[in-house]
Nucleic acid binder design. Structure first.
Length: 960
DNA sequence: GCACTCACG
DNA sequence: GACGTACGTGAGTGCT
């Protein structure tokens, strides 16, 4: 067994005897935390998000790394000696945002409150002090770990000096430096001197970036040699630039090279983690309202009294304190009287945290094992329903170790006292009786049931005959508020908003081979885990709910996202019928065809190999047969994607053609024909997907287990799969899809009157684009020209690039560039829209849909131009894709209501982004068509019509 | 666990 | 003449 401490990725190779010295780049961290964390203010309005991030990081470092020697180092101001060398150094940087300014002194206060050395020096940047301390420590034979994400510090990496990214907990060694700069750490300054750095305004040599710089340094050894021998450079422009800007390069090197000779403000041996004074730390944290951190820290401070009673109006403070071990009262409910008390308390409160425990992740197969209720912070219970005799395995699990040192359960392990005798199930209220008692509460219109991903619990309960309503969902709330800035799992939300680490599921049930069913968990453990989840859910609700209105997403959440939850639950529960035999036949035929293709492929290759292995295929094609094509990617493997193989086919090669056919069949057989049959639920005989509402950056849903949003449609072979999706007897399938919804939104949002009128008049939009770009009449448009225009329209929606369009149409970039110019000349408003989207993203970090959903674009200001360009295109696309997603969400909510209110028997089955698939009684087709079309088209009232096309069939393909 | 490939809108 | 590309997903397979 390996010692767990050796798994830490950040401990440098051991050499010296004293503990490693951690040098923390305080200034770098402030900016990073400020931009990474959502706004957070003290009750008095002072912004403290960066302070919070800083404190959390420091506590984690001390705890995780058991750091003994440490210093936090700051910039002392904007000016440094570098401004004397080059006045423009960092001169273009804007002033710090006003929400950040008051946090600078607070972070220094925090450092001192934690009893940590806090170091800065006028005239030098934090990086210089870090370099100087690292140098001194290394000279003294001590190990150093620099905690920073700043690439400028990479030059310091060497034996005994490691760099570590505080957020990713990733160690950056010489290898990672080489990945970034293409040279060893000791040559990083030379590369930076040549390439310059736009964020710091270091000029470098024009026309040279990191790649070229690394190549040059690799060739000539170092900057001075390169400059001395610049006349040998072959490329004329590059040679001239190197000669002309040699001085600038040398100066740039002075700017980027860190000073290692700064007089140390505090002696090296004074940098140790001091003893925290509880009153000082707690009073500081309380002033900031960081009760979650107080809760976390208190066990480490020994037995001290809570600070002043004033919970200062901070919701977070009260909540986190109650979550801390002292304030919790979790009760195991094993008799009817106790359950009745909890039901009464929940009814009284009008709101209840609710969670179910089951035997698995799939809500359509798992069975209910127990459920938990939380009525106020810290007060929660667990009601076991179908527990069996406890498994023996769990006695070996160390529950407290899995909680990161906080014994939240107050139960250090051992056998639960409430468990029954060996072999017999533990005492529980008979499940039928318990559910009978709970049903009125869970269905009571006056009691809000709050869950975390409550769709899961609603499906489980629906299978028990209970329709949970009304509901709130903290996961969905979190998504409406913060989009994809972070995930929305309970553990992550608890950490972010409450500062607690819930007991992990794995700690309760074990993992891998040793995993036991939740039904076999002892009741004490089950209660500690399950009641905590309900408790945390209710506490998250308190934190998130007020933010909805404050951050202007309340209507979005309540009318669109939350309203969709029960609709999706019903759809998932209903499932869709799939013809098992049809898929079986397809599978066998695909297999036969593949076998024939495989024989021919091996024949053409002259040897037998695994056609399914891109690596082996690449070697056959490009090494053995010497076909034209090249290496690609970091792995050095040949690219063998469909586009590459298709090019070879055009050149007349048979082997790649056969491989393409084989791949298509392999995909259809493995991913669809075979896998889909496995997902047919034995109880219902139908396939039940799960729709995720909180995954995508734009507000789209996603579908998984199985994914029913990517069923083949584009090829005849593929449509065989689609034909296996069939209605119940007496029903037909109805497909209703929004026509050109994203292009309509573009016309709408960008206010393009020509396009708007074309949509109003029902004109063929691709033919219109062709006419505008190529100057041809719409009437009698050549289909090939129309195809190009269609690609342009798609490209526009994706944030067009000459490269992408050229790739798509297989034309030279010069040609695609001309098309794009012609397009923008005709539609200047669309270019304006794109610029506006990018500017919005830069200003706020997000763009919005017409419903006010925020789509976050974190890389919009990335230094890496590729990353930034990616984010810019996403910023252009997101309002279009996202508004479409909102419209469809709302359409589903309203259609569900309309169908409910009508006598019609139609039911929604699936959503595929711009399509809703329904099952409709044969006799009601006409009436349902009219209703569906009306509801969907009238979801929004805008200047551009949103037209819906409806198809009917006795399978999904036919309905299309 | 990651890279590659490919299915969909 | 630097970057490496169309936007958004989920799943199966091969390979380390």
């Amino acid at each position: 067994m390996s010692d767990p401490t050796t798994d830490s990725p950040v401990i440098p190779a051991s050499s010296g005897s004293s503990a490693p010295l951690y040098l923390i780049d305080g200034s770098g961290y402030i900016f990073r935390a400020f931009h990474a964390l959502p706004p957070l203010t003290r009750p008095d309005g002072t912004p403290v998000n960066a302070v919070y991030g800083f404190c959390a990081m420091i506590l984690k470092l001390i705890e995780d790394l058991k750091a003994e020697r440490l210093a936090v180092i700051f910039d002392a101001g904007r000016r440094s000696f570098r401004n004397d060398i080059y006045p423009e150094y960092k001169a273009h940087r804007p002033e710090a945002p006003e929400e950040l300014v008051p946090q600078f002194p607070l972070i220094r206060d925090a450092t001192r409150a934690f009893a940590l050395p806090c170091i800065e020096m006028v005239g030098f940047e934090a990086d210089d002090l870090i370099a100087s301390y690292a140098r001194a420590a290394r000279d003294a034979g001590q190990e150093v770990v620099i905690v920073s994400a700043d690439k400028d510090l990479m030059q310091l990496v060497r034996d005994g000096v490691a760099l570590m990214d505080p957020m990713k907990a990733k160690r950056i060694g010489a290898d990672q430096v080489f990945e970034k700069f293409g040279v060893a750490p000791d040559r990083v300054v030379d590369v930076q001197a040549l390439a310059g750095d736009s964020t710091d305004n270091v000029p470098g040599v024009p026309g040279i970036g990191i790649k070229t710089a690394a190549q040059l340094i690799g060739e000539y050894g170092d900057l001075d040699t390169l400059l001395a021998r610049a006349s040998e450079i072959k490329q004329p422009k590059r040679r001239q630039n190197l000669i002309e800007h040699a001085d600038k390069a040398r100066m740039s090197r002075e700017l980027v090279r860190l000073r290692e000779d700064v007089a140390l403000p505090d002696p090296l041996d004074s940098l140790h983690v001091g003893e925290m004074v509880p009153e000082v730390v707690l009073s500081f944290l309380e002033q900031q309202g960081f009760s979650s951190l107080i809760a976390k820290l208190r066990p480490h401070l020994g037995h001290i009294k809570p600070v002043t009673g004033g919970s200062a109006g901070a919701g977070a403070a009260a909540v986190a304190d109650e979550i801390s071990e002292a304030g919790r009262q979790y009760e195991l409910v094993q008799d009817e009287a106790a359950l009745a008390r909890w039901i009464e308390a929940a009814t009284e409160a009008g709101i209840v945290g609710f969670d179910t425990e089951t035997t698995g992740l799939d809500p359509h197969r798992a069975s209910l094992v127990g459920l938990s209720l939380a009525v106020s912070p810290g007060r929660a219970c667990y009601v076991p329903l179908r527990h069996v005799a406890a498994a023996e395995k769990q006695g070996a699990l160390d529950l407290s170790a899995a909680q990161g040192g906080l014994d939240l359960a107050g139960d250090g392990g051992g056998h639960g006292g409430a468990t029954g005798d060996d072999g017999a199930p533990p005492a529980q209220i008979p499940v039928g009786r318990a559910l009978e008692m709970l049903k009125p509460l869970l269905e009571a219109p006056g009691v809000l049931k709050v869950g975390q991903n409550i769709k899961y619990d609603m499906i489980i309960m629906a299978r028990e005959g209970i329709l949970v309503s009304p509901i709130d969902d903290t996961m969905v709330m979190s998504y409406a508020l913060d989009g994809t800035r972070h995930g929305h799992g309970m553990d992550e939300l608890a950490q972010i908003h409450l500062g607690v680490t819930p007991i992990s599921f794995d700690a309760v049930t074990g993992r891998g081979r040793d995993r036991i069913s939740f039904a076999a968990v002892t009741l004490d453990r089950a209660c500690a885990y399950a009641a905590e989840d309900a408790d945390i859910t209710l506490n998250l609700h308190r934190m998130l709910k007020p933010r909805l209105a404050a951050e202007h997403v309340r209507a979005l959440y309540e009318r669109t996202d939350r309203a969709l939850v029960p609709v999706l639950a019903r759809m998932e529960r209903r499932g869709i019928r799939v013809d098992r035999e049809a898929l079986g036949r397809a599978s066998r035929e695909f297999a036969d065809a593949m076998a024939i293709l495989e024989t021919r492929i091996h024949e053409l290759a002259g040897e037998s190999f695994n056609v399914g292995s891109p690596k082996q295929l690449g070697e056959i094609l490009f090494d053995k047969l010497n076909l034209p094509g090249g290496k690609k990617g970091k792995t050095g493997a040949y690219a063998t994607g469909a586009d590459i193989l298709q090019k070879l086919v055009v050149e007349g090669h048979e082997l790649p053609a056969k491989v393409l056919e084989w791949r298509q069949l392999a995909k259809l057989k493995n991913t669809y024909a075979d896998a889909l049959v496995e997902t047919i639920n034995p109880e219902t005989g139908r396939v039940h997907t799960s729709f995720a509402l909180t995954i995508t950056t734009t507000g789209r849903l996603s579908s998984n287990d199985p994914n029913l949003q990517n069923i083949p449609v584009r090829t005849v072979e593929g449509r065989r799969i689609r034909r296996a999706f069939v209605p119940d007897p007496g029903f037909v399938l109805m497909s209703a899809d929004y026509s050109q919804i994203e292009l309509r939104l573009l016309a709408d949002i960008a206010g393009i009157t020509t396009l708007r009128d074309a949509f109003r008049d029902g004109i063929d939009i691709h033919a219109l684009t062709a006419s505008q770009v190529f100057g041809l009449p719409v009437e009698g448009m050549d289909p090939m020209v129309r195809r190009k225009a269609k690609a342009i329209n798609f490209g526009i929606i994706y944030g067009i690039s000459a490269f992408g369009l050229a790739q798509q149409l297989d034309i030279p970039q010069s040609e695609s560039r001309r098309y794009i110019e012609a397009y923008f000349e005709r539609y200047p408003g669309i270019r304006d829209y794109m610029e506006r989207a990018k500017a919005d993203a830069r200003a706020h970090g997000f763009v919005t849909t017409i419903f006010g959903r925020k789509c976050w674009t974190p890389d919009i200001s990335a230094k890496n131009p590729a990353l930034r360009a990616f984010a810019e295109r996403a910023a252009i696309n997101a309002p279009l894709q996202g508004s479409a997603a909102d419209i469809v969400r709302l359409a589903m909510v309203q259609l569900d209501r309309a169908l409910e209110a009508s006598p019609l028997g139609a039911r929604m089955l699936l959503q595929v982004h711009d399509e809703i698939l329904l099952e409709v009684p044969v006799a009601e087709v006409d009436e349902t068509t009219a209703l569906v079309r009306q509801v969907m088209q009238d979801v929004v009232s805008r200047p551009v019509p949103y037209v819906v096309e409806v198809g009917i069939g006795d399978n999904w393909d036919a309905a299309h």
